[in-house]
Write a protein that binds this DNA or RNA. Structure first.
Length: 247
DNA sequence: CTACTTGGCAACCTTACCTCA
DNA sequence: AATGAGGTAAGGTTGCCAAGT
């Protein structure tokens, strides 16, 4: 919805959120006790078990959003935490196939959800189509996967974060290579200048037969600057090769 | 019409757990 | 078996936006 966050530094880097990144490892559903998690403890004290499997998700959560993607009209009042409480019914967990650990039987055990391969694959597929979900899509996907809408929402949030991180890494690597290339180019051009200056001290017949300077190379982002016709001593125009201007 | 309130959401940060080398 | 790193689910915070008052 929002194009950029005010807290997000605008580095001028393009973030291709449509980038498909496969999950690095298979996932399996595992539950274990997690009694020390403060946030979940807080949730517990509010009567919330964040890891309860979904129950009648089509009726109990996010149904408000079905009206329209960006609608803020909601039949469910309250912020996130309140939303969570609306449909949690500890007595009605579906005994689905997503797997439970041995500790699952503990009364107050906190469960750590791991998505199944199938769930992850479906989420990935959906993410490739659109990296954000409107409430209706979220609800449908949650129902399809047997997850709570909140879980789908969280997965998409984290997925977007992962995508952005990956893309940032790619961009950084790209800029790093650009910098290296330009540094090397600068070095080479300076050397060329020194050589040419030395040659100018000689009569023309000593340097007129020399081959023209090497072709200027640049990083892919500067590809359009490549193959620019060189001047008498092989310099591109100043605008085409900023790094060479400081010679 | 303007100002304020409220609720939803995305982005971001953080935590806790799991898996694997 | 112990351990540290990396991945991931999920909670909390912040800021923006739209709708309502």
């Amino acid at each position: 919805m929002r194009e950029s966050s005010p807290t997000e530094p605008d580095l001028g880097l393009s973030l291709d959120l449509g980038l498909a990144i496969s999950l690095p490892h298979p996932v399996a559903l595992v539950f274990s006790s997690d009694v020390d998690r403060s946030s979940e403890t807080q949730a517990f004290h509010r009567g919330i078990d964040v890891n309860r499997p979904p129950l009648e998700s089509t009726e109990c959560e996010d149904e408000a959003g079905v009206s329209s993607p960006n609608s803020t009209v909601s039949s469910v009042s309250g912020k996130r935490g309140d939303r969570e409480t609306n449909c949690e019914d500890p007595e009605n967990q579906p005994g689905d196939s997503r797997g439970m650990s041995d500790e699952e039987d503990g009364e107050n055990s906190r469960k750590k959800l791991r998505l199944s391969k199938e769930q992850s694959a479906t989420l990935e597929e959906t993410f490739r189509e659109h990296n954000t979900l409107n409430p209706k899509q979220k609800l449908a996907l949650a129902k399809q996967l047997g997850l709570r809408p909140r879980q789908v929402e969280v997965w998409f949030q984290n997925r977007r974060a992962r995508t952005k991180l990956k893309q940032t890494e790619v961009d950084c690597e790209f800029l790093k290579r650009c910098c290296e290339n330009l540094t090397e180019e600068n070095r080479r051009l300076q050397k060329e200048v020194r050589e040419l200056r030395a040659l100018r001290l000689l009569p023309p017949q000593f340097y007129m037969h020399l081959s023209p300077p090497t072709t200027l190379t640049a990083c892919p982002s500067c590809d359009h600057r490549n193959m620019i016709p060189h001047g008498p001593i092989g310099y591109p125009t100043s605008s085409a090769m900023p790094a060479a201007r400081d010679l």
